[in-house]
Design a protein around this nucleic acid. Structure first.
Length: 656
RNA sequence: GCGCGCGUAGCUCAAUUGGAUAGAGCAUCGGCCUUCGAAGCCGAGGGUUGGGGGUUCGAGUCCCUCCGCGCGUGCCA
């Protein structure tokens, strides 16, 4: 059970380059086989041909000094600097002790050597500033490159990796409503899963339900004691029972100590004593209930199953509305590891990683004072114990070379402990020797306008469904009122259809706002801004997509023709160069677990398309070949936007 | 106390991991709809990147130091 624990907090961020260093490294073409593959690919793809030639040229000019030099082609900072830039000359110059501009000149010669055959692909690079190489693709090469990615996969080749990836998502607790704290785990977790799926990985979403232990037993006891009808049970009743059970069992030992110390009156002390006594009684009853549940008591087990069922109906209502692929096959709650906990502890004791301390069993680490507790003095297990069992299952049984926990950033220390312990005992190593990567993708808190964790006016947590409903209402309202305009493409659509579009718009607003920033940071939940439809929002992307669809619909059969691309105007060029970066953007976003990269990319596509749209007539283009070429560019843009939004888990209506 | 993290335009965020004049959106101001969807486009103003020092051809980014803020920190999850 992962309590989101919404407490006061403001800003928290891990530096991406620290957090994801391992991911970034994985992308670099360090192995010779990858280099060869790239060069084979290069036959078709002009950009890949240039990249391959650059690698060779840097080797040729740098010799031994070339190792460790970044020979990657980067998109130019500005259009004046060409399409791509190579910054290797400066670093190489430093290493060789030579003037960077001289090195740059040699790089140009090596790059344009006849053996690479690049004369038809790029113009002769220009040397700028301290030694930047500015590279410009010839228009025909650009057209060839675009055609190369215009297929079902949009240029994204599936990764050959056969191990799976496991992603811990959602983190719901049985008998409790989903609230804001679950939004991010669900949205970010599902999108990261989609990113991996999009690049061809096998993904296991795991919903680690808090469905076991004393809190659940307390709730069951409370419900049964009150003779609640389990058939008619709903989540609200359940929620109240959960809260009451917690309060009942809590007591106030600290208050009592304080009262005695402060010489409070006998009446106050007696009151607190009574409260503690009843708390003790409630705890004893809960323990008794837990024992019955653990021993398989029929009534208790049936009630427990019903508890989960009632909770999950609501969970899937939210997950479905959010458009996630989180379903019952993702469920693997704490209860499913209950029989492994003693053995997990034994394993740590046997390997002498766990030692007794003040009656408890702890695992110690060399580099930190705080130990990790895996068994309480009273013999009970802790969440770390369950997490260790679950982690072993995820690596070993689900065969994962990467396990990602999408959980509140404040649990960072906890996961560091669990991961290190898991590695120490050897459970992070797969049978084939591959070391599984264990990652905590910690996210920041959702704040209210007052910069404090988002709460209702009465101080309670916002129910997730209420939040979503508010966004959906706004979306439906906006779409409906716009459809009243006789000129609007949505004018006259049936109400049900307008509502479906409005729902997609409202949900897009919330999801995009959650995904488009650095996930580790807190953000302010401001529905007005999210749904403003202006600027960097989900609805803006949907709008661009709807316009593209609208043009293609008007183009009729011409939309499906594969005319040759013709890239001539600056707007066409900027859009084309951007689209070419789609495959790489997707791979980087997946490897770095940063959906925000894909968001930023899609936003650029939408704005570049808008500029192209106002500058370049498409359907009304006078020249037939230009018209056909632009229609195909529009189609490719639409496909990328649709595919990208789908990967984010955001719906893309054809009209809005 | 110790540990982890954060500080960029009035506000919300970027900056491709050390590259060119720190970029977007919102807000403000000025242009653009009888013509492919104006939920849009084009343009303007707005910055001592918390302060100081260092490393080098080059620092928002790396190192040191100070200031401010947040989170975590042994028997809850």
């Amino acid at each position: 059970m992962r309590r989101p624990r919404l407490r006061r907090s403001r800003r928290r961020r891990l530096r991406p380059w620290k957090r994801h260093r391992n991911h970034a490294r994985r992308l670099e073409p360090v192995d010779p086989p990858v280099g060869i593959l790239r060069r084979m690919n290069a036959v078709q793809d002009p950009v890949a041909r240039v990249e391959a030639a650059v690698t060779v040229a840097v080797q040729t000019v740098g010799g031994d000094a070339a190792s460790g030099i970044n020979a990657a082609l980067k998109p130019s900072a500005k259009p004046e600097f060409g399409d791509f830039q190579l910054n290797a000359a400066m670093a190489l110059g430093k290493k060789l002790g030579r003037a960077p501009r001289d090195v740059a000149a040699e790089l140009v010669d090596a790059l344009m050597a006849a053996e690479h055959g690049l004369e038809d692909v790029i113009e002769t690079p220009e040397i700028a500033g301290p030694g930047f190489l500015n590279i410009r693709l010839r228009p025909t090469a650009l057209a060839t490159a675009l055609a190369g990615m215009d297929d079902d996969r949009l240029g994204i080749e599936p990764e050959p990796e056969t191990h799976g990836v496991t992603i811990d998502v959602c983190g719901v607790n049985v008998a409790k409503q989903m609230h804001v704290g679950h939004l991010r785990s669900t949205v970010i977790g599902d999108t990261v899963a989609r990113l991996f799926e999009r690049v061809g990985r096998t993904v296991h979403r795991q919903n680690h339900l808090g469905d076991w232990g004393l809190p659940i037993a307390m709730t069951l006891h409370s419900l049964l004691a009150r003779g609640i009808d389990f058939e008619a049970l709903d989540l609200d009743t359940l929620n109240v029972a959960y809260r009451d059970a917690q309060l009942e069992a809590r007591g106030d030992a600290r208050g009592l100590d304080a009262a005695v110390a402060n010489r409070c009156g006998p009446h106050r002390i007696a009151e607190l004593e009574a409260q503690n006594e009843s708390a003790g009684a409630a705890q004893a009853a809960a323990r008794d209930a837990l024992v019955r549940l653990q021993s398989g008591d029929e009534e208790m087990v049936a009630a427990w199953r019903r508890l989960i069922e009632v909770t999950m109906i609501e969970v899937y209502r939210a997950c479905d509305l959010l458009g996630t692929r989180i379903a019952p096959d993702s469920e693997r709650g704490e209860s499913s590891f209950r029989d492994e906990l003693a053995e997990v502890v034994d394993a740590f004791v046997r390997s002498e990683l766990a030692v007794e301390d003040d009656g408890a069993l702890v695992v110690r680490f060399d580099d930190r004072e705080r130990p990790m507790l895996i068994r309480k003095r009273d013999g009970g297990f802790l969440y770390a114990t369950t997490d260790l069992a679950a982690l072993r299952y995820r690596v070993q049984e689900l065969d994962s070379d990467e396990v990602i926990y999408v959980v509140d950033a404040r649990q960072r220390d906890h996961f560091r402990d669990v991961f290190d312990a898991c590695r120490k005992i050897g459970w992070a190593t797969l049978p084939d020797g591959v070391e599984s990567k264990l990652v905590h993708l910690g996210f920041g808190t959702v704040l209210g306008a007052d910069k404090k964790p988002l709460k209702t006016r009465s101080g309670a947590n916002f129910k997730l469904m209420d939040l979503l409903q508010a966004a959906v209402d706004r979306g439906v309202e906006a779409v409906t009122s716009r459809a009243e305009d006789p000129k609007a493409p949505t004018h006259g659509l049936p109400t049900a259809e307008l509502e479906a579009i409005g729902r997609a718009v409202g949900i897009a607003a919330i999801k995009y706002a959650d995904l488009s920033g650095d996930s580790a940071r807190d953000y302010v939940f401001d529905l007005d801004r999210m749904i403003a439809f202006e600027g960097d929002t989900g609805p803006y992307l949907q709008y661009a997509h709807a316009r593209l669809c609208s043009m293609l619909e008007k183009a009729g059969d011409d939309a499906s023709a594969d005319a040759d691309f013709k890239i001539e105007t600056p707007e066409e060029r900027r859009l084309a160069l951007l689209l070419l970066r789609y495959p790489e953007t997707m791979k980087t976003a997946a490897a770095s677990l940063e959906a925000s990269r894909l968001c930023r990319f899609l936003y650029s596509v939408a704005t570049e398309f808008s500029s192209f749209y106002s500058a370049c007539p498409v359907l009304r283009a006078e020249d037939a070949s230009i018209r056909a070429a632009r229609i195909r560019l529009v189609r490719l843009t639409r496909d990328v936007l649709r595919d990208g939004l789908d990967t984010l888990g955001i719906g893309a209506p054809e009209r809005m």
